[in-house]
Structure formats: C-alpha cells, structure tokens
Design a protein around this nucleic acid. Structure first.
Length: 211
DNA sequence: ACATTAAGTGATT
DNA sequence: AATCACTTAATGT
C-alpha cells in the first residue's frame, strides 16, 4: 500500500484531500516495534509524530529514572505537547515510546506553520487533540491534589470495565499500581477494603466488579 | 517437589 | 500513603 493510500484510509475522514496530499508529500511513514523510543527528553524535535497504527506512550522520567505516563496515543492521535513546544523551543520535554508495534507518520516541524495557516481541518484537529489532553490533565490534577487513592482506584476500575465492556478485569495489582503511580501494597490494601465493602471480588490476576 | 510470581499483612515512617 | 520485611497463595516446570 502506498503512502497516499494509507493516509487516506486512516485519516481520510478527518483531513481534507489537499492536506492529506501535503502530509503524504512531506511526511514519512515509519514502522516501529514495541519499546522503541522515538523522542527523548532534551532532543531537538525535527518531526512531529502522528500515530497511524498501534499505541504510543508519552512519559516523563524523574530524577530516579522512573517513568510517569502522561498519556497514551492511539491511532490517529498526535502528540500535541510537541506542537506547543515547537512554537517556543525546539527541545523535547518528554519521552515518546512505542507501547505496541505500530506505524507513525513523521512530519517535519518546520513545515507545520504552513499547515496551521493553510488548512482549517488541521487547525481543528490540533485544537481537538489539545482539548482532549487538557481535560485529562485537569482530571489527573484533581486526583493528585486530593490524594484520594481509593476514589482513584474506583474510577480506574470503572473506566477499565466500561472500556473493555466487561465486569471481569484480568489485571494484577501491580499493573494498577503502575498506572496510578503508587505502590502495589497500597493498591492491594484498598482493593481488599473494596472487597469487604462488597463492591468487588478478588482473585489472582482477576477482579470481578460488582457495581 | 520446587521455583516463581501475585497478593496479603503488620509495623514503621 | 509509602516502604520494608515477611507470609501465604496460586501457577508454572
């Protein structure tokens, strides 16, 4: 499948013909494997990545070298953080890593201004992306500020069960802890508490949601 | 039977 | 809520 076709198929419903042509002409498509790091903190950003296939994660790494996930990017999504950075400096504040195998469209940063000027569908896309991220940030802000871990876990379980359309989650306490940036012990304790309240039932590698 | 990994718990900060 | 140290339970080889 050639570049133009691929872009048409994946992004055709949100971008105009001319914009797709522009992306195909100036961008390049790369296939990547799980775990590959595309951008590291401090890098000069030459391209902005748009996810065509698979999932990527955007993380910040703290002094101890621990990763904190800012957000995941699925198909059709771009790293809006890089947009805002391009406008000011050229250095990345974040790490960009592939969570699964997948494909990215890399579009040169220096051409991005033109996109913004010329294509309404691009402007709309960027705004929408930015808006989505902003909402997420506000949500996580609320959680962190109030430190209500039990509430965060409840919300997490609820979200997961809705997303996966099931009341049976195959997940470990450790995985939940990673996602919420806390320790496994804390998660185990709070889950036990929820179990006693009759809201969930615990098994190994599995949680049944009873609400 | 043994090793490995997930989960539970008390004590401490 | 986080961390440590330790126990117990489930699973894989």
């Amino acid at each position: 499948m050639n570049k133009q076709h691929k872009l048409d198929k994946i992004l055709g419903d949100i971008f105009s013909e001319r914009l797709l042509k522009n992306l195909a002409d100036n961008g390049r498509i790369v296939s990547l494997e799980e775990g590959m790091q595309i951008i590291s903190r401090g890098d000069d950003i030459k391209d902005i990545p748009i996810v065509l296939e698979g999932t990527a994660k955007v993380v910040r790494t703290d002094e101890k070298g621990e990763e904190h996930i800012l957000f995941y990017l699925n198909e059709k999504e771009a790293c809006t953080a890089t947009f805002s950075i391009c406008a000011t400096s050229k250095k990345s504040e974040i790490d960009f890593i592939m969570e699964t195998d997948g494909e990215l469209l890399l579009y040169p940063v220096h051409l991005m201004d033109n996109l913004t000027k010329e294509f309404p569908s691009w402007r709309y896309y960027v705004c929408k992306n930015f808006n989505k991220r902003m909402k997420e940030f506000l949500n996580t802000m609320d959680s962190i500020v109030f430190m209500k871990m039990d509430q965060r876990i409840l919300k997490y379980l609820d979200k997961a069960s809705k997303a996966l359309q099931t009341k049976v989650l195959n997940i470990t306490h450790q995985e939940i802890a990673n996602d919420l940036s806390t320790s496994r012990v804390v998660v185990s304790r709070l889950l036990k508490q929820l179990e006693h309240e009759g809201r969930i039932k615990l098994y190994r590698n599995r949680i049944n949601i009873l609400f």
